[in-house]
Computed example of a mutant assay.
Amino acid sequence: MQQEIIDFRQSKLLAGAELSRACYRHFDFGRHVHEDIHLGAVIRGAQAFNHKGSGHTLSPGELSTLSPDECHDGVAASDAGYDVLVLSLPQWHLDRIAADLGVAFGGFHEPKRMDMVLYKDFISLHQLLYQGQNPLVEETALLDFFQRLIGHGPQSENISNRGKGATGDSREIRLAKALMADSPEPVTLDLLGDATGLGRYRLLRHFRTHTGLSPHQWQLRLRLERAKKSLMHNDDSSLTDIAHLHGFSDLSHFNRHFRMAFLTTPSAYRRAIRN
């Protein structure tokens, strides 16, 4: 019987970028967001996912294009499961690449692209970054790929006008996100409601409308995303210290939430990502 399998690796070329290969059959990614840009390609089977309230299916030949802080989920489209390659990279990498190409990147209009050439280029790029053997070859493949994805020309991505930091959120929602992101201590709806001037009930309703998540769900995911980065980069800190640093009361809660989100434990992730 096919089992859930996932392998993580850190890119040598792209600081802070995460590569993964996974085989999913029953694992259900509940509604969540990412702090980084996520690109993915299914190489066997298909994934069903909801993005901003609309249902989609990601199949071979299509590239998943998810901007930061966009609520979505994911599950196998059939009992056969699916295999997928994912590249997660911080926004500043794409800003730098866009500057090199002379274009302005403000996010993706759609959560996937149907483009067989782009799909094959992504798979080749993922393999090169995964092996991490020749930076010159990797950089060339990287720029060629993003030239097609976000560059000028008939095959390029139609860029939105949102811009970095202009996500379409209201001032109150941006303030609530900033308060939750910067506070290691528990944040209450009363505090968020008072700070934004909305009150706790209107704040909760508006936050769900804008993000697709409750404030607690959004904050939990942000803490898990940032904890992953700490596991990637921090050699000296214990798992307990990292758990506390990112707002988890103890290692048990950190392990449980991490495994539910990423199908692996923090310790296993750290070993894999530094291999």
Rank of each mutant, 00 (worst) to 15 (best):
N158T: 10
L192K: 09
V84L: 11
A176V: 07
R202M: 12
M114I: 15
H26P: 01
D182S: 15
H32L: 00
H38A: 15
A76T: 01
L231V: 05
Q131H: 13
Y119I: 02
S267A: 13
S252Y: 14
Q131F: 08
A272R: 02
R96H: 11
R223F: 00
I97E: 00
N134T: 09
R9N: 12
W218L: 04
S64E: 08
E225R: 11
I37M: 10
L94Q: 01
E18M: 08
D7T: 14
R221Y: 03
F207I: 04
K228F: 02
K112T: 05
R205E: 15
S124H: 15
Q127D: 14
Q133H: 14
A15I: 09
A22N: 01
F122Q: 06
L222N: 08
N50Q: 14
A178E: 11
V187G: 07
S183D: 15
V42H: 04
D194T: 10
H51I: 06
A243R: 01
D73L: 07
L58H: 02
N255D: 14
G153T: 01
S160H: 12
T65P: 00
L203P: 02
Y201S: 14
D100F: 08
K164R: 13
G193S: 02
L66H: 04
A17C: 04
S230V: 10
E139V: 09
M116K: 13
Q219L: 07
K228E: 03
W92M: 09
M232G: 03
P154Q: 12
D28C: 08
R9Q: 13
S88V: 11
A141V: 04
R148M: 05
S238N: 06
F248N: 02
N234E: 11
Q133R: 15
K120S: 11
T211P: 01
R205C: 11
A181D: 09
